[in-house]
Design a protein around this nucleic acid. Structure first.
Lengths: 243, 243
DNA sequence: CGAAGTTGTCTATGATAATAGACAACTTCT
DNA sequence: AGAAGTTGTCTATTATCATAGACAACTTCG
């Protein structure tokens, strides 16, 4: 507590500054990934010493709310999205449960041909006609993952247009009469983001990604679609049930 | 902030102690006039040094919440309510301006007959039917005053029931179409509390009270009601405009 | 009166808070 | 390459926070 200038309140100055910045993050004045004002500028707005601001930022950084980058600035750290891996996980439910607003956006929908591996996953013959949907999912305004989805073009005609309208894979399947579905075995690996995904995820080159490959089946066990998703590793953590 | 024992929270220890005691006063664990535990005892319950407790008590004393008596103890000081005397003072506004929560409670509503003095104040004939309302007013949970109000039973039928529901004399008048009113001449005297009022005000026998007699008029100058209020002198101070 | 318990005041010590200035190390942009 | 702006680190100073011990001054009760 400074208490050299104002009456002693019993609350340290750096705490007041930290609380002020945290409020700014909470109410959206500073969004995830945003750059905070410089330490000097913050010091001036709160009328305190720069070191006091650094004390406040250090407290926020320790809690993972902000991240300082030397020479560049201090950034709001997107809080990691807890992503439970179960057979019935829906992205919108997961994001909503975290109190954030889920969004989906279609990047591209193109025709494709089944490779031998895709054909095996989907229970089709090699060379069968497929629809390939490239989409991005966000929580609030933060990109979480990009995913490539393949569906049978014969079973789901015009799937691209339907996804563009509904922005949800669950709703797309419902449109074709699939009331419920379950996720089969899920493979998780890690890698480094490529240039295309880096741009889409608003991620710096060289940063790690989590790669998830999974196939969804209907309740009779017939494969519906197979997915290849790339998650920004710094924005998500997967939770696996133990027991 | 101690920060010698626990992780630095940015809030001073004495502040935590002071807040704890203030909460105790606010929620009634320590009532007005009560003796607080000794400084040593408080220090033990909060596991801090006695000097830290003294710092907390000093902060509370400066705000008028407690009062230390050397050799005896520290007592909860009923903070005196600043009560400005103007022609348009409303109890709820005064209490609310002090950051406290105003309450009103009906004690008793009975039929009465106008004495000669009451009749003169209210512009009625001696023996006219009146409604007599006995009520108590509180700030937070502290009784401030009990007042006896007389209204014309003919002009304000069932006034007792209306006051019991609204708990506010202003709202009662509004219910009968009186949009605004003003206070006439106010007489202030002092006396000693009697047993009945002592119990209602939670006041020790023999303590002083401020007695206020006033009559409220509508904007045309017609008398609406007349009041006889007894204030706990140690909990209120009247402010009169100078100039 | 005398003992016990209370608040008031003094000195002392170490840790924390806040300020101030200077410079290094790094990033970004021209 | 260079300038400007950013965070990181160092030294130094002053005020506050918290603890510790001792004793005075006072009240209450037996």
């Amino acid at each position: 507590m400074s208490m050299q200038d104002t009456a002693s309140s019993g609350v340290a100055l750096w705490r007041l500054v930290a609380d002020g910045i945290e409020r700014g993050i909470a109410d959206g004045r500073f969004a995830a990934g945003d750059k905070l004002p410089g330490e000097m500028e913050i010091a001036e707005t709160y009328r305190v010493n720069r070191h006091t601001v650094r004390r406040a930022l250090a407290a926020l950084a320790e809690r993972g709310l902000v991240r300082a980058e030397r020479g560049s600035g201090t950034y709001v750290e997107a809080q990691k999205l807890a992503y439970p891996l179960r057979s019935r996980t829906r992205f919108s439910e997961i994001v909503g449960a975290g109190g954030r607003e889920p969004h989906g956006r279609l990047i591209e929908a193109t025709d494709d041909i089944a490779t031998r591996e895709l054909a095996r996953e989907l229970g089709l013959k090699t060379g069968a006609p497929l629809m390939r949907i490239e989409a991005i999912r966000l929580a609030d305004r933060t990109p979480i993952c990009v995913s490539t989805t393949w569906l049978s073009a014969e079973r789901f005609p015009d799937a691209g247009a339907v996804f563009a309208a509904t922005r949800s894979m669950t709703k797309l399947l419902a449109h074709y009469g699939v009331r419920d579905y379950r996720r089969g075995a899920t493979r998780i690996t890690a890698g480094i983001v490529d240039a295309t995904d880096a741009s889409r995820l608003d991620l710096a080159l060289g940063r790690p990604i989590l790669v998830v490959d999974a196939t969804d089946h209907d309740l009779e066990g017939r494969p519906l679609l197979t997915k290849h998703s790339r998650f920004a590793a710094e924005r998500v953590e997967f939770l696996v049930e133990n027991g």
